[in-house]
Amino acid sequence: MNNKTEDQILTELLRDANEQPPKALDDLILNQAKVNNNAAANAKIQKRDWKPWLAAASVALVMPLLWMITNNEELTHTKEVLSTPQITPKPSTELDQSLTRPESTFSDADFVGHEQEQLHDMGEITITGSRIKQTIDEAQEEPATYIEIFDESIETESQRSITGKVIDQESLETNKVLLKNELKAKKRTIKPSNMNPLMALEYEQFGRYLEQGQFDLADQLLTEMQDNWPDFDFEDMIYRLAEAETKSD
């Protein structure tokens, strides 16, 4: 008898008893498998179900948000229009308000928001020469009132940007610095290669005035040069004039 057969005999003898687990254990284990399967399936279903809900919720949240942002811009705009100080003429003046109201007191809404209305109103305005004359006469009689209104309007307008919105002082200063820097950056340096012949002659003349102590003439020439060639940087010439004046003192 070979080894294989011997192995088979041993296996058969071992399995002859065929000992099996109790039925209760079988049921317990099979039930556990069922519970595990159901839990896994439910978890997958729940996971799958969340996706469309999540997408729908995202849309439902984003859309009103966009709508609110759009609306907020409009609200902000309207608020600014309403908060713009309105200068009204004093009640002592008997002039028609539509005429006495300074142009500067028109809000941006008057120009932008109600452009159509403005154009329509303009068509209906009728001003006679006598009424204009009357207004001028009254203004001349009470100059203080009109100067006050003018000053107020100038002050108000100086606090607005080109868009009509009020700029705070800080941003105004910042803008000034930025503007200066920008202008300075664009200025050309005064040197023989940059100057045209006429400017070169005037530049030489400026030097002669400084040497001769004719500072008034030098200053006058400098002003003319600044007017004629605004794209040049005259800081160096200004400094030379100031220095020469200080030395002569």
Partner: peptide, 24 residues
């Protein structure tokens, strides 16, 4: 595979195959 409709059945087959040897 959680979404397989046969997974309880396949487990039963697997269990029947090996329950005796494992237990012994």
């Amino acid at each position: 595979q959680a979404d397989d409709v046969n997974n309880q059945r396949v487990f039963e087959i697997l269990y029947q195959r090996h329950k005796g040897p494992f237990f012994r």
